[in-house]
Simulated assay, not measured.
Amino acid sequence: MVSLKDIASACGVSVATVSKALNNHTDIGADTKARVQQMAQEMGYHPNAAARTLKTNRTYNIGVLFIDGNHSGLTHDFFNHVLDSFKRTAEAHGYDITFINNGRMQNRKMTYLEHARYRNFDGVVIACVEFSEPEIIELVNSDVPVVTIDHLFNNRIAVMSDNVGGMQQLTRYVIGKGHRKIAYIHGLPSAVTSARLSSFYKTLEENGIAVPDEYVREAAYRSTDETYRETRSLLELDEPPTCILYPDDFACIGGINAIREKGLRIPEDISVAGYDGIEIGLHMLPQLTTLAQNMDAIGATAAEQLIDLIEKPKTTLIQPNIIVGEVREGGSVAAPRS
């Protein structure tokens, strides 16, 4: 194993100078620093993790708590992009990530907080969980640095997609195409759903459009079966909608199947729009109109905020970080038939 002494000997400098160069100190010359860092790389030097932990009192390991209700895990087509961005950003700052689970300790399940402490995580990011669960509340209220994604606690940093603004953009877009009979199949109750639903109602109201109660339906996120059933019910109304908004792009597939079974064409007979901007929408025919969330920015911002909280706890602001998305215009929304 290459040591600091080996690098110092190869560069003709002191061990102290090598240490300062590798830790990016400013009290040595730029040329010397670059030469030492280049030599360390060529010699295959890697800092000893245990020694670094003793020196900094940090493990450089971040816990990820991610529990998808549909048990899709890392195949989840929205959060897999968010978590990949989080991972890449954390690794660029020298951190590893480990997923949190209910491991066992003394013949019983550990809580999430116990697991975080057992692994000695420097911090934890929480995404796609039931945030009202007691174990989640316990972890959030602990002394472990935490950042949440798409849920706001008063005392924690949150990274939030602009759900209010996103739904406003999407609803205004379909109104701009001439639609007045707009249905919305929203997700199951959550902070995200509440924000989008309120924004939907408010945007219609601002444009003088009334929405019948039967136009607003509920289906689980990513459930093609439920959106299929709700879409069939909408199409059987005496006055069916001319446009249907779906809880997410993946669930939209179920609605499209129901529409085509009915012998209707998209967008000639009825328009549809999704939410998220996942890749599958780009391959639909016609290409799906959707509110594309900035998944890379959500993940990267969560990592940067958590690392700031770990490394600079006294100066990092505890506040929500709102990430704006944009309407991605496909071919699934057109003017309604007169």
Rank of each mutant, 00 (worst) to 15 (best):
Y201K: 12
Y201W: 09
Y201S: 06
Y201C: 05
K202L: 13
K202P: 07
T203P: 02
T203R: 02
T203V: 08
T203I: 06
T203C: 05
L204S: 08
L204D: 04
L204C: 14
L204W: 10
E205Y: 15
E205Q: 15
E205M: 14
E205H: 15
E206L: 15
E206D: 15
E206Y: 13
E206W: 13
N207D: 09
N207E: 14
N207F: 11
G208A: 09
G208Q: 10
G208S: 10
I209V: 11
I209W: 11
I209A: 06
I209G: 07
V211C: 15
V211S: 14
P212L: 12
P212Q: 08
P212C: 10
D213W: 10
D213A: 15
E214T: 12
E214H: 15
E214I: 09
E214Q: 14
E214K: 14
Y215D: 01
Y215V: 04
V216H: 05
R217C: 03
R217W: 01
R217Y: 00
E218P: 00
E218W: 03
E218Q: 11
A219K: 01
A219F: 03
A219T: 01
A220L: 13
A220F: 11
Y221F: 15
Y221G: 09
R222P: 06
R222W: 13
R222H: 14
R222T: 13
S223V: 03
S223M: 03
S223T: 01
T224H: 08
T224Q: 13
T224S: 08
T224E: 10
T224L: 12
T224V: 14
D225H: 13
D225L: 15
D225E: 15
E226G: 06
E226S: 11
E226K: 13
E226V: 07
T227D: 01
T227R: 04
T227A: 04
Y228Q: 06
R229W: 11
R229T: 12
E230P: 06
E230D: 06
E230G: 05
T231D: 01
T231P: 05
R232F: 09
R232V: 05
R232E: 07
R232W: 08
R232L: 11
R232Y: 08
S233H: 12
S233N: 12
S233M: 10
S233V: 03
S233P: 03
L234T: 03
L234F: 05
L234E: 04
L234N: 06
L234Q: 08
L234V: 03
L235Q: 03
L235N: 02
L235P: 02
E236W: 11
E236P: 06
E236K: 15
L237M: 09
L237I: 05
D238W: 07
D238L: 11
D238V: 10
E239F: 11
E239I: 14
E239Y: 12
P241F: 06
P241W: 03
T242Q: 01
T242C: 02
C243N: 00
C243S: 01
C243W: 01
I244M: 12
I244T: 06
L245R: 01
L245H: 00
L245P: 00
L245S: 00
L245N: 00
Y246P: 08
Y246C: 05
Y246L: 11
Y246R: 08
P247V: 09
P247S: 03
P247L: 07
P247E: 02
D248Y: 01
D248M: 07
D248W: 02
D248P: 04
D249G: 07
D249L: 10
D249H: 07
D249S: 08
D249F: 09
F250Y: 14
F250L: 15
F250K: 10
